[in-house]
């Protein structure tokens, strides 16, 4: 049995040694070109997902990142077991596979010399879901921002709440927003960068309440899932529904920036901040 699935997966990955097939335009792109273009399709500008550390490398001045709360990782408060495995096992596997302890990496660094606090979500860690550890890291990062009066930037990439932590996951929405609410008091800027995808509980909390909301092109951003909505309204939804462009049109995004220009855009905006 084993070699069947093995050969199948080999076939699927055959091209991936040299090629990457863009999931959007379905063109085959040289892997090297794909990576040199920051995991953005050179043909259609599709911004595919990147890891938290890759993003930090693109945004912060090299050598300035100082990570905080690196050791926080999920507990299993509900003793949750899904169809295949326990949450505990899933976390152990995910930590091993990704080298991450949580779905978010937080710390301080500089953008062209301007000091910032960043929190960068990583979709590979259980779909970037919002667990207690994720929420705690965001709160701690925003508290650091508050204490030191340093601008706070969150890069979201998340399917939403983490079901495996039940109500505690939902409460992280309130917890993170309580931290962000305090920043106004001290006039500390909070910038939210929305990347593909930013949905559910993450869109309905910190990701949507930036002083500025900036999105990468073509990102899926929305509250309810497409299938759920189609089921509710018994209608097909437009193709561009819940994209960055759709949100820009409806007034929820300040602007869309390509990955290659994100750092400079953030710098430009922060240069207006007179502390």
């Amino acid at each position: 049995m084993a070699w069947f699935s093995k050969s199948k997966s080999k076939k699927e990955n055959k091209s991936s040694d040299i090629w990457i097939k863009c999931t959007k335009c379905e063109n085959h792109i040289f892997k090297e070109d794909w990576h040199n273009n920051l995991n953005v399709c050179p043909k259609c500008n599709y911004h595919s997902k990147i890891s938290a550390y890759e993003r930090i490398g693109l945004i912060l001045d090299s050598g300035t990142f100082d990570e905080i709360n690196i050791s926080i990782y999920p507990a299993d408060p509900l003793g949750f077991v899904d169809a295949k495995e326990s949450y505990k096992d899933k976390v152990a596997k995910t930590r091993k596979k990704t080298g991450l302890n949580e779905a978010i990496v937080t710390g301080t660094g500089e953008i062209n010399g301007i000091k910032v606090v960043v929190a960068v979500m990583d979709f590979r860690f259980m779909g970037g879901s919002l667990g207690s550890g994720t929420g705690e890291k965001i709160l701690q990062a925003s508290n650091y921002s508050y204490d030191k009066k340093i601008p706070f930037i969150i890069f979201s990439a998340s399917g939403g709440a983490r079901m495996h932590e039940g109500i505690l996951s939902l409460m992280q929405m309130a917890k993170t927003c309580a931290g962000i609410a305090r920043l106004d008091e001290r006039k500390v800027p909070f910038i939210s960068v929305l990347t593909d995808p930013t949905t559910g509980g993450v869109s309905a909390s910190y990701a949507m309440v930036g002083d500025l909301n900036i999105a990468e092109p073509g990102a899926l951003i929305g509250f309810a899932g497409r299938r759920v909505i189609e089921h509710t309204i018994k209608q097909k939804l437009p193709d561009d529904f819940q994209t960055s462009e759709y949100l820009l049109e409806h007034g929820f995004i300040d602007f869309i920036a390509n990955r290659s220009e994100m750092k400079n855009k953030l710098y430009q905006v922060l240069s207006f901040y007179n502390r």
């Binding site: 990782y73 507990a75 207690s132 705690e136 932590e165 505690l168 917890k175």
Partner: peptide, 10 residues
């Protein structure tokens, strides 16, 4: 109150 909600390992 909200700062204290959540269970995680450190």
């Amino acid at each position: 109150k909200y700062s204290n909600i959540g269970v995680f390992n450190k």
